[in-house]
Amino acid sequence: MAAVTEFVLLPIKPDAAPEAVASVIQANIATLLAQPGCQRVRSSRTHEDPNKLRLFADWASLEAHRTFAANAAAYGPFLQRMGGIVDAASFGPTNPRRPPFHVEFAAPPPTALDGDKGKSPIAEVLQVYYPSDVSEARRAEIYATTADFLGKLGAVAKGLMGEVALGWSVETDILFKGEKSRALVAVIGWTSYEAHMQTRDTEEFKKLIPMVRDIEGVVGMEMFHVSNVTTEGGQ
């Protein structure tokens, strides 16, 4: 069974006290790490929108996470606590609730996400969406092209930390612009947010980005930055 990283997006109530949010997140991280198979949990406000909080949980397998979700005694209080800080009013027809999804990285765990416990102070997370029925052979081609892009980026960009993770989502029904999609996720470690933005303004980057942006079948892309606090659990 393959290891997976769970990606969670939590829109936080604008009026939620930071102390209350921190208390809930700490309690729920403790709950996660008490589950068999949960190896570590990372958390961060999103650089681009501090009202969006991200969690990244490494699981030994998808089955381990599903076992936790089926355990009402542990999962019920977990959801109840989370409900107290999530901005449910932000959901609607143009902004539907986005359930967690899982990524099988080629070389787990994705250490570029480790933040305060790792080498990279900040991580860029790039999620590129493709049709839900993209074939296995086509996924392999897309993966190879994206890996080539990341290698060439490393040769010209300043501020990279030399940490990259790449993998496909397990789920094929991730909603993006109203369409069910499958995501190829790249995590790239940087010295700072500013270093990435400066790289994006270079001619070298502008020549490289079409390698990913113009891949046939791309539904769309999302990019954000996190500086995670990482909590380790039992292996």
Rank of each mutant, 00 (worst) to 15 (best):
A2W: 09
A2K: 14
A3K: 14
A3W: 08
V4R: 02
V4G: 00
T5C: 11
E6C: 07
V8M: 06
V8I: 12
P11Q: 11
I12F: 03
K13C: 08
P14Y: 09
A16S: 10
E19Y: 05
E19Q: 15
A20S: 14
A22D: 10
V24T: 09
A27T: 13
I29R: 05
A30D: 14
T31L: 12
L32V: 01
L32M: 07
A34R: 07
P36G: 03
G37W: 07
Q39C: 05
R40D: 00
V41L: 06
V41N: 05
R42L: 14
P50E: 14
N51C: 11
K52R: 15
L55R: 01
F56E: 13
A60M: 07
R66T: 02
R66G: 00
T67Y: 00
F68Y: 06
A69S: 08
A73H: 04
G76F: 02
F78R: 05
L79A: 10
Q80I: 02
M82N: 04
M82R: 03
G83Y: 00
G84L: 05
V86H: 02
A88D: 11
A89F: 02
N95E: 12
P99R: 08
P99K: 08
P100I: 04
P100F: 11
P100G: 03
F101Q: 05
H102G: 04
V103Y: 03
V103E: 02
V103R: 00
E104G: 04
A106R: 06
P108L: 05
P110N: 04
T111K: 09
T111Y: 13
A112Q: 02
G115I: 02
D116H: 09
G118S: 06
S120N: 04
P121L: 09
I122R: 00
V125D: 01
Y129R: 08
Y130E: 01
P131F: 09
P131R: 03
S132D: 11
S135M: 07
E136I: 04
R138Y: 09
I142Y: 03
I142L: 13
T145L: 06
A147K: 06
F149T: 10
L150K: 01
G154Q: 10
A155Y: 09
V164P: 07
A165Y: 06
L166S: 03
L166E: 07
S169Y: 04
V170N: 12
T172K: 05
T172V: 12
T172E: 08
D173Y: 09
I174K: 05
F176K: 12
F176Q: 09
F176G: 00
F176I: 08
K177N: 15
K177I: 12
G178M: 08
S181C: 15
L184K: 02
V185S: 10
V187S: 08
V187W: 05
G189K: 07
H196A: 03
Q198G: 14
Q198R: 15
T199F: 10
T202M: 11
E203G: 11
E204F: 00
F205C: 09
K207L: 14
K207H: 14
M211G: 04
M211T: 13
V212E: 06
R213K: 11
D214Q: 13
E216P: 03
V219Q: 14
H225S: 12
V226C: 12
V226T: 13
V229C: 09
G233W: 08
G233M: 07
Q235L: 13
